[in-house]
Amino acid sequence: MSRTLAILGVQLRRSVLVALQYRVDFVLNAVMAVFWTASSIVPLFVLYSNRKSVAGWTWPEALVVVACFTMLKGCLSGAIQPSLQAVVEQVRKGTLDFLLLKPADAQLLVSTSRFELWRTSDVVSGALVLVYALVQLGYTPSVGAVALMALLLVSAVAILYAIFIVVISLAFRFVKVDNLSYLFMSIYDAARWPASVFRGVFSFVFTFVIPLALMTTYPALALLGRLAVTDVLIALATAAAFFLAARVVWLRSIRHYTSAGG
């Protein structure tokens, strides 16, 4: 455990150093991220400009979902995507071999190899949107509600991470899968809408296949004090299941990589 933390620490340090080396990039990217967050609210704004509520969600309530979406996006594109995207490149170049030769868990090494720290600006701007939404609602959540939202956001990160691990595991078999991760990023964009907006097939897919509902709508509902205990348990169990399943897929892919290899 202490070794795991030590490795995580050194890897984070490395990303901080890279960020410091490219300071101008850091600032520019962070500014751009704020701009993108603002632009992600535009469609919502247009939608709500001539009605009071959509699928049972008022404008400030929907903003809470957007806030969760933005914060999660920061985690996804700052802490999950860069490392795992890099694996695809490593598989192609053959430098993944060096990682597999290290006496440490390869999944840990792979998942922590790159953090894009300027993405924390997403988390900050998400938090600002959240505060604005709460002010609009005139609602002060309890400490418990905030903690529950945080817990559900963490399990959402676990689900996103698991999905990415599975996507990347495909890289061991099919080598070029970077496009798949772009596809996933664009699907993730749907999570900015409250889950009840979706009907039919989309509702099914976003609940059971890629549980977008769990990721952004549940934490929002938790904050607003409207999420049932059973739903909380379902969300946590789903996250755990995704995480474990991803681990199994990863281990199998590594075994396949070394046994077929080349």
């Binding site: 070794r3 030590a6 490795i7 620490g9 050194v10 890897q11 340090r13 490395r14 150093l17 890279v18 080396q21 170049k93 053959g94 430098t95 071999d97 060096f98 030769l101 290290k102 006496p103 440490a104 090494l109």
Partner: peptide
């Protein structure tokens, strides 16, 4: 250990000292 002349394990953007530090943590 395995070293190959064709591929490298050093972190491209940082000084080698950082790779050394990373390996220190990995090998405990």
């Amino acid at each position: 250990m395995l070293v190959t002349g064709q591929k490298q394990q050093l972190i491209w953007d940082l000084p080698p000292a950082e790779t050394f530090e990373l390996n220190r943590a990995i090998y405990g």
